[in-house]
Amino acid sequence: MHQEYTVIEGDFVNAGVASSSVKKTLKQLNVNPQVVKRVVVALYEAEVNAIAHAYGGTVSVDIDPDKIRMVVADKGPGIPDIALAMQEGYSTARPEVRDMGFGAGMGLPNMQKNVDKLNVTSEVGVGTTVEMEVNFQ
C-alpha cells in the first residue's frame, strides 16, 4: 500500500496530518500498538522537521505485510554536518519552532531510537531525505 502527502513550509497547523493518517491505517491493519507508536512518533518528528527547517517536501509511505518504509524528502537548506545534527541537544530551530514545543535537538535522535533502519542524506542548498523502516515483528 502506497500513500503520499505534501508538507508545506511553516504549516505547523497541519504538522502531523500525514502521521495521523498513517496511524489510522496501521490500526486498521491490526499492527501491534507499540509498533504503531514507534512508527508515528518517528514519522511525526520527520514531518515537523520538514515543516520547521525546510521549504516543504513530500512524505511517502509504503506499507508491506511485514514492514513500513517511510521517506520524508524536503527541499531546503540541507544539513551541512549530519553527525552533528544527530547529536541530542544540537538544534538550529527558529523561535517559532520552539514556540510549538519543538526545536530541542531531539528529533533525529528520537527517530533513530524508534525505527529499525534510518538513513539521512542531505545536500546543502538542495534538501534532505530521511528514509526510515520499521519491521512489524
Binding site: F12, S19, Y44, V48, M100, G101, F102, A104
Partner: peptide, 24 residues
C-alpha cells in the same frame, strides 16, 4: 513536545503549551 514524544508510557500530560501540536 519533543520530550513527550520520547515517553514509553502513557501518563496524563500537565502542560502550559496550548496549541494544535500539543494535541497532535
Amino acid at each position: 513536545m519533543s520530550d513527550v514524544l520520547t515517553l514509553k508510557e502513557t501518563p496524563i500530560l500537565i502542560t502550559g503549551l496550548c496549541n494544535i501540536q500539543t494535541i497532535r
